[in-house]
């Protein structure tokens, strides 16, 4: 299991749902811990179908966006795929203004992302 204690992971039929159970993703320790936890997921599931549930995240910094971009690049390199889901209205504009909404597959809810991945297995 990931070392990040606020990253809750469940695997369904080859699809990994990882929920970030933390409201504030601002301090370096939390951001680094999240990065480590996500990297461990890729070690365990190299060709991953990852749904990252951000529904509990109310605050994040641009450093978190950097971690997500790094993860996205790794996932693509390993021929996997990832989606972000459940973002609060206050968080979504951060992705739009940085054009990252064009980089990430974004779903309103984690369940919708899971359904989309089930319909199109890797």
């Amino acid at each position: 299991m990931p070392s990040c204690d606020f990253l809750h992971v469940q695997a369904y039929d080859g699809i990994v749902l990882a929920k970030v159970a933390k409201e504030r993703l601002l301090d370096a320790a939390a951001i680094n811990s999240l990065g480590e936890g996500l990297n461990q997921l890729l070690d365990r599931y190299p060709k991953i179908s990852l749904v990252l549930d951000l529904s509990e995240v109310g605050y994040l910094s641009s450093a978190v966006l950097g971690k997500l971009v790094a993860l996205h690049k790794q996932v693509k390199t390993l021929k996997g795929r990832m989606a972000l889901a459940g973002m609060k209205p206050a968080i979504l504009p951060l992705f739009k203004v940085t054009n990252l909404d064009k980089v990430f597959e974004i779903h309103a809810e984690a369940q919708l992302a899971l359904i989309a991945y089930r319909k199109k297995p890797l």
């Binding site: 910094s61 641009s62 966006l65 950097g66 971690k67 971009v69 790094a70 996205h72 690049k73 940085t98 054009n99 990252l100 064009k102 980089v103």
Partner: peptide
């Protein structure tokens, strides 16, 4: 620059 890991602040 879209996939850089910094510079969005």
């Amino acid at each position: 620059s879209l996939l850089l890991e910094h510079g969005r602040g």
